[in-house]
């Protein structure tokens, strides 16, 4: 096989690879409702200690069932799983989200230690929930940017 043939063959194969990657990129879209439910679950998790006692026991069950339902729906709709901890531009965003949740919980605990009240967890949970919504949207955009970069 001469140089030109080798080059053409390599280009053809790369095109085939890019076409296959495009199939995944075309399907990797999550509706706004999905991001909203993610935000609701994360916000609820942070706000949990501030909830009235009768709701506090139900919240973890709601979070676990909600997360499972979300994952099942996403797996069924997309037919693939993309981890939040994959290498690339999405990784710092995932770490950032964990950081926001951590800061929220620490702030709530500090308020409890200093003033002896649990209710600050509620506004903090709301704030973290709103932040999660935008971080989740940003994560999806970063994923597409990563896929686009891979395809050159």
């Amino acid at each position: 096989m001469d140089v030109q043939q080798q080059r053409d063959e390599a280009q053809r194969t790369l095109r085939t690879i890019h076409d296959a990657e495009q199939i995944i990129a075309d399907r990797a879209h999550w509706p706004i409702g999905y991001h909203a439910v993610c935000a609701l679950l994360v916000g609820l998790m942070v706000a949990m200690p501030g909830l009235p006692r009768e709701l506090r026991g139900m919240a973890p069950i709601a979070i676990v069932f909600g997360a499972l339902a979300l994952k099942t729906w996403s797996d069924k709709r997309h037919g693939f799983i993309i981890s939040g901890w994959r290498r690339g531009r999405t990784l710092p965003i995932s770490i950032g989200l964990v950081g926001v949740i951590g800061v929220g919980l620490v702030c709530g605990l500090l308020a409890k230690l200093r003033y002896g009240v649990w209710w600050p967890f509620l506004p903090i949970g709301l704030t973290v929930g709103i932040a999660t919504f935008f971080i989740s949207l940003m994560w999806e955009r970063a994923l597409h940017a990563d896929m686009e970069r891979r395809r050159g």
Binding site: I17, D19, A20, I23, H78, S83
Partner: peptide, 21 residues
């Protein structure tokens, strides 16, 4: 090569999705 390219883009993909694609 297409199979590997699809799987390299994700963590896991369903057999049916890969087959149909």
């Amino acid at each position: 090569i297409q199979l590997a390219a699809m799987l390299a883009s994700v963590n896991e993909a369903e057999f049916a999705l890969v087959r149909d694609s």
